[in-house]
Write a protein that binds this DNA or RNA. Structure first.
Lengths: 232, 232
DNA sequence: ACATCAAGTTGAACGCGTTCAAGATTGGTC
DNA sequence: GACCAATCTTGAACGCGTTCAACTTGATGT
């Protein structure tokens, strides 16, 4: 994870062996300060000073202050994956798998709640490279969707065939919704988000099981065709 | 609308007859420049210069650049209300009323699509006064929720009693979702958002009707109790 | 006529993210 | 060892949102 001659950057900046060390130093310093002081109160000058480099040098490796966060995404995704592993190994019940993966995601994010809230505005902007829907974020996004594909494939749940194809992305979208809720969640320890997960998962589970029910067949069809329409 | 001695500000700033004129001048100038150049490319200096006042003067009336947008909310809400009036007058079918109100909302927003996208990031921040969930936005928010209450009360739809109480707020939340989609919508004329509305409304309608169905009763209960939990 | 005082107005100054022309360092080549 | 080009590093400078001590204005009381 530390030592590679091949470019490791998601954004695709050139990363030779020489500069990589400085790059990592700046990144580590930035992440530490972000966690200590929050995103807004951490200045680029402070990052540079603490890292022992010039301000301009930080901009040689990172296009902007926002781009420093991209790494946060990648790391979080990797940690999420790891944290979800035991559940995916152990459980075969769909609801249990989904709940486990969602909780694992929030577990990983929890230490960064304040930090996440402060840079969320940036990620929310449609044109931002930090948007979870952006091309720059496609790596972590695809990986995350893959995680929800696993939730489904490893489970014993019986799902309408059409719906099954769309479900991983839908579950990822639901996860984005949970994260959105979590960012806004001001309850101590974000307990409300936990309640949301525990309350919504059985609901989703039920709806997914019901998707094969005769009365709901048209509704299922409608959902699937709507999704199809919206993505051309 | 122009001429009042009573304070008119939503935020509650003091607005005497004397300063009100300057306030309005700055506001009009700002709104014009925002539409002409976009939010980010409009500087406070430019607003002040064009309005013929000093920068500091703008800050006497508005806490920040962001606060200049608060007025945009209030205006949009009022226009939405007006645009929805004919539909609420004419239709009694729930789906037709909902679709009409949602389309009216997007109609009103359409001319400001670029502008809205540029300041959306600000509104998305949980702690921002511009957040649709913030205390400062409670005026327009309550009015908007009221609009969806009317969608329901004026309709012939039969809804589960428990659900009925929560529905206006849920519909408003769905509207927020549509607006979120609209902000991200890069299709020409935001045609996809129109498709989303036309596709999702029958679905919501169906689900609402089905909420009284026996098989779905537990699900409905679950939804209602989850909402109840999440708001203490 | 004058004093008083809140309301309104000013613009220089601050700290921020970001840029960029200039300089320093490195590894390869003859 | 001398040169070169690519890579890396520097810090002053720019424009931005925002602040604030100082100033002006105009209505009110005497």
């Amino acid at each position: 994870m530390t030592d590679q001659t091949v470019p490791t950057t998601a954004a695709g900046e050139a990363a030779t062996a020489r500069g990589e060390q400085t790059r990592q130093l700046i990144l580590e310093t930035a992440m530490r300060l972000f966690r200590e002081r929050g995103y807004a109160r951490t200045t680029m000058r402070a990052i540079a000073t603490e890292a022992g480099v010039a301000v301009g040098n930080a901009y040689y490796y990172f296009q902007s202050k926002e781009h420093l966060i991209q790494e946060f995404y990648a790391r979080t995704q990797t940690e999420h994956r790891a944290a979800a592993e035991p559940v995916l190994e152990r459980e075969s019940n769909f609801a249990a798998r989904l709940a486990g993966v969602l909780h694992a995601g929030i577990d990983v994010l929890t230490p960064s709640h304040e930090f996440a809230a402060s840079f969320f505005k940036t990620a929310a902007e449609p044109t931002s490279p930090l948007s979870p829907f952006s091309a720059e974020s496609s790596g972590p996004r695809e990986a995350s969707i893959g995680l929800y594909a696993e939730v489904l494939t490893g489970s014993t749940a019986k799902v309408d065939a059409e719906l099954r194809r769309q479900l991983p992305e839908l579950l990822w979208l639901a996860y984005m919704g949970v994260v959105l809720f979590w960012v806004y969640d001001r309850s101590p320890g974000q307990a409300r988000t936990r309640q949301l997960i525990d309350g919504a998962v059985p609901l989703v589970d039920r709806l997914v099981q019901l998707s094969r029910l005769r009365v709901l067949r048209p509704v299922t069809q409608q959902v699937v065709s709507l999704i199809h329409t919206l993505r051309h």
